[in-house]
Amino acid sequence: MVITVIALAVLASVYGMAIFATPTERSQGLAQKILYIHPSAAWASLMSFGIVGITSLGYLLLKDRRLDTFSEASAEVGLAFGVAMLTTGPMWGRPVWGAWWQWEPRLTLTLLLVLLFVGYRALRTAIDDPEERARFSAVVGIMALVLVPFVHLSVYMFRTIHPQPVFLKPSAPSMPWEMTRTLLFSMAAYTLLYVGFVTMRYGIGKRREAQSA
């Protein structure tokens, strides 16, 4: 809980930094400042889902129930960040692209990934036997891991109107330093928020397991 509260306070200072201490982009106006929260939510969501894939693989290899509990926690946290990403993205797209949504590769693949994790949650709810639930959901978690790099690389692989990555690319960041530092700070805040959320959610999962044992 402490990490989450600190992370939310850091996020509040990201808001302050983005609004008051970062220059306004001339052609997009203040809507451009949405790009200090939307890519960070996308980063946190993809990181959460990527970790689900890794811990799921770990579960299948080691059969350690803690890895399954952690996968469940990271998947739920990833969905929360996914909702934030899919909510803030259209609010940038409407004034800049002239449309709330475009069925282009990055957006469509991202939506599919989020829907896959809605299915992951449904699967976990539908199976009563803990071993069977852990095994089946680990397979789904690993399948989703395959989709994560495609989501990131989709802007290079397909013709798309989605902006290209600012940091996770071979060349230097393509923004002025005043903007880059705010986005970096925001990504750090979301990473800390992930740690806070997943710690809390893992604790809930562990207590549920202990009570049902």
């Binding site: 939310l8 996020l11 808001y15 609004i19 306004t24 001339r26 052609s27 997009q28 106006g29 203040l30 809507a31 451009q32 400042k33 949405i34 929260i37 939307h38 939510a41 929360a80 909702v83 934030a84 909510t87 803030t88 609010m91 940038w92 409407r94 004034p95 800049v96 928020l193």
Partner: peptide, 19 residues
């Protein structure tokens, strides 16, 4: 520069409410 402040405010509020 276009006035797109309403979109920024809406996005920041929605993000805060979700998190």
């Amino acid at each position: 520069t276009p006035d797109t402040s309403a979109y920024m405010v809406a996005a920041y509020l929605a993000n805060a409410v979700i998190l």
